[in-house]
Amino acid sequence: MTAAVTMDLEAGTAPGGGVTGTGALTVENFSFWYGPTQALFDISIDLDPQAVTALIGPSGCGKSTFIRSINRMHDLLPGARGAGRILLDGEDVLDRGLDVVHLRQRVGMVFQRSNPFPKSIYDNVAWGPRLNRRPSRRELDDVVEHALRRAALWDEVKDRLRENATGLSGGQQQRLCIARALANEPEVLLLDEPCSALDPIATQRIEELLWELKKDLTIVIVTHNLQQAARVSDRTAFFYLGRLVEHGPTDQLFTAPREERTEAYITGRFG
């Protein structure tokens, strides 16, 4: 498998379920520790491009720890360390020599609470592109518009791009955060319970958006909401106590789970 991955990389195609395209993630025997406490045990899973993978499980089961490992958000945490491999298009993201800045541009992230910068809507979306490239005014305008359109926010904000982003509603702020991530043209989008602070209508808009976005992205979403996982995802992975109990196509996992614990969780017997 490992050899095949390397060869695939050289041939310019991505590994992972045989789907071609970039942004394929392959996780092999990944474990993670916060200091002496082990948070994740031996996770192996393929996260497919052009698909939404939902991570479900009770609080504290390691879903967020896992998703934050993919773009190395734990780096600043003293004592945090991982073992195993997380391959993005064949390249191990845990490799110490890897350019984390570049990785985070390829792997966008949206957080539980929307966190726009207290700047204008335009400057929020332009923040990432301005970092490493020096785009011309014209280019930047195009990037901002494109990102806002992809995040289904353009029509609502096109006349007030210069207004402060903190004046937007909660749902709009979260879509702005998605647009901000998309402006970097990532291959992977990680969402850590993006709807937990939103009302049902705003939630529905984000779910529809994910459906559109997955056409050219690898999407991984952590959610507490089982209905949401069932609605938006192609594949679902069930985490429990730091272990990946079961993963598979969403309809199969929800209708015919292989594991007893999965069934217990999705039928609401614990969680």
Binding site: L76, R104, Q105, M109, F111, L131, R180, N184
Partner: peptide, 12 residues
Amino acid sequence: SQREAALALGAT
């Protein structure tokens, strides 16, 4: 959250 937003966008 502000720091994480910046880091997640690829900021040094």
